[in-house]
């Protein structure tokens, strides 16, 4: 099992010294969410210690409870909620700087109530759910169909198609491939996305 996982890891992340790539450290960028007060800071290069509310972290402490109403940690991203009346244009750079400091010492993060570390299956399910509720699901809806998460276990995600997507082989292939590609960016260990 481990051998297969290691093999997949090597295959999915071609490791070569291509000129241009800097050595991995933690890098991040913010994305908009449906809530204008919430920004999703996607994190690469560092595994986040738990999923759930953040109570304290170096750097972010100065903003938590003041400019930032809340900070939530998810697999691969940190969600920051701005306090009412704050603009991201002004607050953003400060949050970026604070987050940079925090990501430098992830071991010192303190989880808030209800936060815990997810295991491999739970992480896989979370990310698959995130994508299905988000961009991948939206594409299905745009085509008059829907995609439903059935199960996520041991690197395999099972989904079910509905509506216009159901029964159309092209749709099935495209949706599963799309989901798999995007999922792999967040969970490199994913092995396959199959139809249930």
């Amino acid at each position: 099992m481990r051998a297969i996982r290691d093999h997949l890891r090597r295959v999915s992340r071609p490791a070569d010294a291509r000129p241009g790539r800097r050595p991995p450290g933690a890098v991040t960028h913010p994305e908009r969410t449906d809530d204008p007060a919430v920004l999703r800071w996607v994190v690469h290069g560092t595994e986040l210690p738990f999923t759930g509310p953040l109570a304290s972290a170096p750097g972010l402490d100065g903003l938590l409870g003041g400019d930032l109403e809340a900070v939530t940690v998810t697999p691969g991203a940190v969600l920051t909620t701005a306090a009412p009346g704050r603009s991201w244009r002004e607050l953003g750079p400060r949050v970026r700087a604070a987050l940079g400091t925090a990501l430098g010492s992830v071991a010192d993060w303190l989880p808030g109530p209800g936060a815990r570390r997810l295991d491999a299956d739970e992480t896989l399910r979370w990310c698959a759910r995130e994508l299905i509720d988000g961009p991948v699901g939206r594409i299905a809806t745009a085509h008059g169909g829907a995609i439903e998460l059935v199960d996520a276990h041991d690197g395999v995600v099972r989904v079910r198609m509905h509506g216009a997507c159901r029964g159309c082989p092209a749709a099935v292939v495209t949706m599963t491939q799309r989901l798999e590609a995007q999922l792999r960016r967040r969970v490199p260990d994913v092995r396959a996305v199959e139809q249930a």
Binding site: R21, V27, H29, E31, V42
Partner: peptide, 16 residues
């Protein structure tokens, strides 16, 4: 800025 670029490209599924 280089870090931002790297992060954005990773999220965008960019393979050099």
């Amino acid at each position: 800025l280089a870090g931002w670029v790297d992060s954005v490209l990773a999220a965008g599924g960019y393979e050099d």
